[in-house]
Design a protein around this nucleic acid. Sequence first.
DNA 1: TTGACAATTGACCGATCAGTCAACTATAGT
DNA 2: ACTATAGTTGACTGATCGGTCAATTGTCAA
Lengths: 203, 203
Amino acid sequence: MKSECESKGRLLSTAMELIWESSYGSVSVDDICRKAGVKKGSFYHFFPSKSDLTVAAMEADWKSKQPDLDALFSPQIPPLARLEGFCDGALRGQENKLAAYGKVCGCPMITLGAELSTQEENIRLKAAEILRRYIRYLESAIRDAQSEGLIPEGNPREAAERGFSLFQGALLQAKILNSLDPLRDLKANIFRLLDARAEAAFV
Amino acid sequence: MKSECESKGRLLSTAMELIWESSYGSVSVDDICRKAGVKKGSFYHFFPSKSDLTVAAMEADWKSKQPDLDALFSPQIPPLARLEGFCDGALRGQENKLAAYGKVCGCPMITLGAELSTQEENIRLKAAEILRRYIRYLESAIRDAQSEGLIPEGNPREAAERGFSLFQGALLQAKILNSLDPLRDLKANIFRLLDARAEAAFV
DNA sequence: TTGACAATTGACCGATCAGTCAACTATAGT
DNA sequence: ACTATAGTTGACTGATCGGTCAATTGTCAA
């Protein structure tokens, strides 16, 4: 028996994997338990409900990605290159999902938020929280880009919100069209939205 | 008994209403039948399955909106004013939903596409089809705007796809944040993305 | 060795799920 | 008046849903 409980972690990652590939509504607690190799009694020993598990899985997923994001948005990297890296990473991630499952799966946070924001307030709140965290990365890169004169001055927070809207929308279109095309020009489109001197960005 | 079957229409509109307010997965066939005042036997007399009903409801919903969209995107209206009207309409629609249900519900097509694109291929295809139709409106307005010199030249189809991504993303953010704020600057942001001489647009 | 506690198990619950069916009723064309 | 057919009804299915529970097993500290 493990005290740094391994079953709990397996439930978290399995839940995120299954929900990402399909949806919250079409994944059952039994599905998650079966795939994680954990009995249902254990599930409810660790989590009071399906939606609580989902919230925990969202947070765990974020935590697992944060180191990469920190590296990607390091102040050591030129600000516009950070945005490039972010878009490239999203495209690569979707390519991997496509190779593994044969479908474009989009962003799990966005998908969960779209599906459940009017239904499960705790999931909506977690999605909103993670949304804000992403925007914070973009905001910081945009502010640095402005101070270096790479893009026109303006409210960096609002610019980041705009940019992330475009980003989310492209991921969603990619999922609905089941095609990576909407993601290929994402970099250029975000720079266009930010009014960046494009040439400066593409190294 | 009606031959232009009223029960069928009630099922379609009720389904769209319930799914829009919550989600596909959390609305049952029984829920739809109860609210529509139709027995389940009749439901399956008209539709072979829940997902077939949903596809039909998506199409019916589009058909009901098309006259308004045709008017909104009439060539009689200045091209950038069409885009303004489109954004205004979206904001008004969300305001109404918010007033009626106390939550920002987003766009039902987008929500359905986000939830089910990896699960129900027929729903994904219908969502993709309707997505394309929206983009066609935007594309035409953008092409006209270009020919009038209101925005820079460029591939109108791609510009429309960009614009619709931004639009979708903003609606999704609004739903997740349960706030209309992301929609308030939508007009200005789309013009920014299109590189429009802003002053020309705002009458 | 013992006691406390975390983790695990599998059987179990009532409710609800999508979908079926045979019987019944109304309508329209002849 | 007769028939074919479209619409309606309510009872029914087996499977699955999220969640519960008492009993058991393993772990660690005193």
